[in-house]
Simulated assay, not measured.
Amino acid sequence: MNEPLTVYTLPNCMQCTMTTQALDTANLPYIVIDLTTDERASDLMHQFGYTSAPVVIARMVSWSGFRPDWIAKIAALRDHPTLTGK
């Protein structure tokens, strides 16, 4: 799985910082979108029912808040043959 995750964040958000640090540690690529500067993204997150940051969107799963358990699962699956096509 080489496609980057998308992380929707807010400034000065401790859980957002912890999430991006954990993604860095797990060597998982990601794109950050600031919800305070992207109104469309903010509206979309509310439509999906998310009310707190960060929101992480992966290939087939999404979550909000700092979830090291989900980050570990995504990292473990990164090289799985069914996802890499090997």
Rank of each mutant, 00 (worst) to 15 (best):
E3Q: 15
A75D: 05
D34C: 00
I33A: 01
A41P: 08
Y8F: 14
D34K: 02
T37A: 06
R40D: 13
T36W: 03
L28I: 09
R59D: 12
P29F: 02
I71V: 13
M1R: 11
W70T: 08
V55P: 00
L77A: 13
T25M: 04
M14Y: 09
R59F: 08
M18F: 06
L5F: 12
M60S: 13
P81K: 03
W63E: 06
P54Y: 09
A75N: 06
L83N: 05
Y8D: 01
G65Y: 03
S64Q: 15
S42W: 12
S62Q: 15
I31C: 00
T6W: 05
N2R: 14
M60R: 15
D43W: 09
S52W: 04
N27L: 03
M60Q: 15
F66P: 05
A76Y: 07
N2T: 12
Y30P: 01
I57H: 06
K73Y: 07
W63H: 05
A22D: 04
Y30W: 03
A41F: 09
L28A: 02
C13M: 09
A22G: 03
I33G: 01
T51E: 09
T36I: 03
T9Q: 10
M18K: 13
A72T: 12
D34F: 01
D79P: 00
P81V: 06
S62W: 11
A53Q: 03
G49Q: 08
D69C: 10
K73C: 06
D43A: 14
I31A: 01
G49E: 08
A53P: 00
G65W: 02
L77Y: 06
P11R: 10
H46S: 13
W70R: 14
T25S: 06
T82N: 07
T82S: 06
V61Y: 09
W63G: 04
A75G: 03
V56E: 02
H46T: 14
V7N: 10
I71L: 11
T84W: 01
W63R: 07
P54I: 15
V55L: 04
E39G: 13
A76R: 12
L5C: 13
H46G: 09
T36L: 09
M1V: 11
D24V: 05
E3S: 14
K73Q: 15
D24I: 04
P54C: 12
R59H: 13
S42D: 14
G65V: 03
M14F: 12
Y8N: 02
T37K: 09
Y30F: 08
M14Q: 11
I31T: 08
F66K: 12
E3R: 15
I74F: 07
K86T: 02
W70D: 10
T6K: 15
D34H: 01
H46W: 10
Y30K: 01
G49H: 08
D24G: 06
D24N: 11
W70H: 13
I57K: 09
L83I: 05
T19M: 06
T20K: 10
S52H: 06
T36K: 06
F66L: 13
I33L: 04
G85I: 06
I33K: 04
V61K: 14
S64M: 13
I33R: 03
I31N: 01
T17E: 10
V7R: 11
R78M: 04
A76N: 11
L35R: 00
I33F: 00
D43C: 12
H80T: 00
T82H: 08
T84A: 01
G49R: 07
A75L: 02
W70G: 07
T37S: 11
P11C: 07
W63V: 08
G65F: 04
P4E: 11
